[in-house]
Design a protein around this nucleic acid. Sequence first.
DNA 1: ACCTGAACACCGTTCAAGT
DNA 2: ACCTGAACACCGTTCAAGT
Lengths: 200, 200
Amino acid sequence: MARRSDHSREELHELILSATRQLVEREGFKALTARRVAEAIGYSPGTLYNLFANQDDLVVQVNAQTLSMLDQALAGVRLSGKPEADLLAQAMAYLAFLDQHPRLWELLFEYRLGENSPLPDWFNARIQELLLKVEAALAPLFKPSENRNRAEAALVLWASLHGIGSLASSGKLDIVTTCQPDRLVRTLIVNFVAGLNRSS
Amino acid sequence: MARRSDHSREELHELILSATRQLVEREGFKALTARRVAEAIGYSPGTLYNLFANQDDLVVQVNAQTLSMLDQALAGVRLSGKPEADLLAQAMAYLAFLDQHPRLWELLFEYRLGENSPLPDWFNARIQELLLKVEAALAPLFKPSENRNRAEAALVLWASLHGIGSLASSGKLDIVTTCQPDRLVRTLIVNFVAGLNRSS
DNA sequence: ACCTGAACACCGTTCAAGT
DNA sequence: ACCTGAACACCGTTCAAGT
């Protein structure tokens, strides 16, 4: 009916993103709905489609912000040069983030995009940046010529950490209530690093 | 309108389960819909609700069958008593299963049940059975008194394997196309087992 | 007793029509 | 130019009414 222009295009963009983030943080991504986001900001559902291609696009853009938050959490870990200690510190920062923002973590890693919404390239690039931080912690264990192996080790740790987080957050690991994720992560890192040490 | 009784209650139950499985295997769980399952078997949507509490219940029962298939795949691995070789064989069986039934694996581990559909106890018990197989392969590395540590190590491996599978299947690991899941799993197991060896 | 199919309360997304 | 809101084509789930 109207041009309201209560907000500039940029303001509206940010308004939608933050309403989406709040909705997900409060109720999980199953409650995420274009209509509910529109209601939260006082616009009609159609308005979202002026600024975002579709719901997947909206999710990806929220996830980009979450990725930045996770990156900052890891950037807060100062490396000592002792791989085991540094990797443990990074892993604990990761788990702390998961604990503080479980719903955003789920939106980032468990929300399935549709077939027609492949992850944009910059998204993979951002994950690569995170992996570089893990590689930096691993560096003392590898000769410079072994950067291939170092990258592989970082990927293994990243994926394993992801698996522990994923099973814990989906409740599919509650069988063993005695095992805190922290303990599992410690067991993983201590033994994996020891294995790497042996071969060098 | 009618009692058709084209099928007994048991037949209908199985009919619905297998139609669901086929739909998921062909199109992934995003295409799973009560109406499409009903259409596939030639009944009305309401009929599903005579046999299943809701869609989550249907999914859980399909997942139970998938869990059995996965269990059989792992049961096919004969243990030699050499932990590294046995764990590698189990992991490869797991990855082969994932490769053969990627959509069923996703339904099992990535489909999110609603808040009101907690995993039934027997489901967790079934996962425990799978973990026991991993523990059996790990057994030579632990004293009998260390069964706690053995269980923890099995859980870590299980979760890590899950993480690699999860990132691979969601396309969030395609960054490193050169790294096959097999390679990552091998790196994980070789180093983790070496680490366990060192401490014993 | 069993199954239907219409109904209810929702979805994502589009787009002609308003200001 | 911008936003609306009705419309389209779907959902899961229920339940009175039929056979």
